[in-house]
């Protein structure tokens, strides 16, 4: 399972980096969305997978899955939501101001 997950994570990263490198600013935002999935899966895969019961003590199991990465990823998901929406709104405002979604046209002025 861990090897399969590692490969899937690699694919997600590949696709999101490819999206980052494209000219359309919308694709860049989609890239961040996918990248956050990749990161979350990576965090949880780095600990061992599926060892023991879900981390709920009232199940009375003998061993539990590592709860720490889960807490970490839960935090990460919510932060990623905040960051993605901020980015999305920035894209939205950029488009409204400049009437283009093409990053080559949006490049900074020459004297910077």
């Amino acid at each position: 399972m861990e090897i399969l997950m590692s490969i899937i994570i690699g694919i997600i990263f590949t696709v999101s980096v490819y999206l980052f490198l494209s000219r359309s600013i919308i694709r860049v935002v989609l890239g961040t969305l996918l990248l956050s999935h990749g990161v979350h899966l990576l965090l949880i895969t780095m600990s061992e997978l599926q060892r023991g019961a879900p981390p709920l003590l009232n199940l009375g199991a003998e061993s539990y899955t590592d709860p720490l990465p889960q807490a970490l990823v839960l935090t990460a998901i919510v932060i990623a939501f905040g960051v993605t929406s901020l980015l999305l709104v920035m894209v939205y405002r950029t488009y409204k101001e400049h009437e283009t979604d093409d990053l080559e046209e949006l490049r900074g002025s020459a004297d910077e």
Partner: peptide, 18 residues
């Protein structure tokens, strides 16, 4: 905070019809 933030973000965009 979660309720407030999620709705603030979405409503800000929804209300913006410029």
């Amino acid at each position: 905070v979660v309720v407030g933030a999620a709705l603030t973000i979405i409503l800000a965009i929804a209300e913006d019809d410029k």
